[in-house]
Amino acid sequence: MPPESPKERAPSIRDVAKLADVSHQTVSRVLNDHPSIRDSTKERVLAAMAELSYRPNRAARALVAGRSHTIGVLAARNAQLGPSSSIAAIEDAARAAEYYVITANLNALDPESIRDAIDHLMSQSIEGLVVVAPQVRVFDALASMSIQVPYVSLQSITVTGPRALSVDQIEGARLATRHLIDLGHREILHLAGPQDWIEAEARMRGFLDEIDRAELRTHPPILGDWTADFGYFAGRELSRGRDFTAVFAANDQMAAGLLHAFRDEGVNVPGEVSVVGFDDIPLAAHFWPPLTTVHENFTEIGRRAVALLLEEVQGTDEAVETLQTLPRLVVRESTGPAPGRPAPLPKRY
């Protein structure tokens, strides 16, 4: 059989060398940005690579250089849409720094599953790890493991060390609750997230702090599961006996389910009940009515996570901006004055 031509197989480093009329060692030096290569030679090699659509073999380069240029991401499979935006931002920031990203999604949260996911990532020779799985048991498991690469965790309450990025979600929940109080609402419910999630605990705490500060009656939080289906179920149940005028939902998906249920049950939003969400996912502005919610800059969070990680991986001295980011309230049409109350003067949040 005749040998394969470059058209019939993936081009190799020797194909590039032949087209550029250089040795394959010269091509290797160009790939590794060796300072001894003349600019004219480098341009000729790069042009040959482009013409042949040559892609360097990552595994081979990692073996030679001892570097994989790969970051691992440990994520909860049932992560909300908001945190999933952080993962996309991590991939974009890593790509800009010429790093690859491998993600391991946790199907279960038992110690064995977490350990298996970490082992899978480590088997890919990752140089660093970002943890986007904000459940208490995940951090408990990580604390008991010896992780041999630098890692950064996206946490939700306070920064607990040099490896943690934090979003002040307690303050975000306080902003949402305070907005409803300023609108004259006195009977406010909280549709909370799952108890094991650090974010859910932080948002519940902020809600309760603000309710206590205003000396209002505390309704027991309703424990949800982050899904729009649960929000719809809760909304249908709540519509049967309304002793409230506002609901703060711990994420936008559950808020979407609430809006759907209230519409089906003939409850006017915001005329009879106001609804606030959390995360400001892209669809929030297109719910009906458009959702008042707490905005988190997931793109910035992901960018900072990669910057912090690469600072440690590469041993640079570049300072990463503050490790805690502040959310802000975005007021839309799902909130209004409590029934029987005049419209208050507009406030800035």
Rank of each mutant, 00 (worst) to 15 (best):
R332P: 10
S85K: 07
A202P: 04
S123V: 05
I170L: 12
I211L: 04
R14I: 13
K18N: 13
A261P: 04
D92P: 05
R332A: 10
A250W: 02
P342H: 10
I222N: 08
A214E: 09
E210Y: 10
V331K: 03
P282A: 07
P3K: 15
L183K: 02
I126E: 01
V73F: 00
V101S: 00
L329A: 06
I37V: 13
R14P: 10
R14E: 14
V294D: 01
L19V: 13
L326Y: 08
W226H: 14
I13D: 07
A96F: 09
H286L: 08
L326W: 08
R240D: 11
S84M: 14
P150H: 06
I198M: 12
P35G: 00
G66Y: 01
A256T: 11
A255R: 02
S53F: 04
A133V: 12
S28L: 05
L258W: 04
Q148R: 13
V275Q: 02
A47R: 11
P221K: 08
V159T: 09
A133D: 08
P56A: 03
D92K: 14
L63W: 10
M145D: 07
F244G: 02
V267H: 00
T70Y: 00
L191K: 07
K347H: 14
A89N: 00
E311H: 11
P194L: 10
A255W: 02
I13E: 07
F298A: 00
Q169F: 13
F207R: 05
L154H: 14
P342M: 12
S153Q: 14
S239R: 08
V22F: 06
F230K: 05
P327F: 04
S156H: 14
L308E: 02
D280L: 01
E272F: 01
D92H: 12
P83A: 02
D39C: 04
T316V: 13
P150Q: 06
E318H: 11
Q195K: 14
G271F: 01
G224Y: 06
Q324D: 12
Q324G: 07
E318W: 08
E187I: 09
H69E: 05
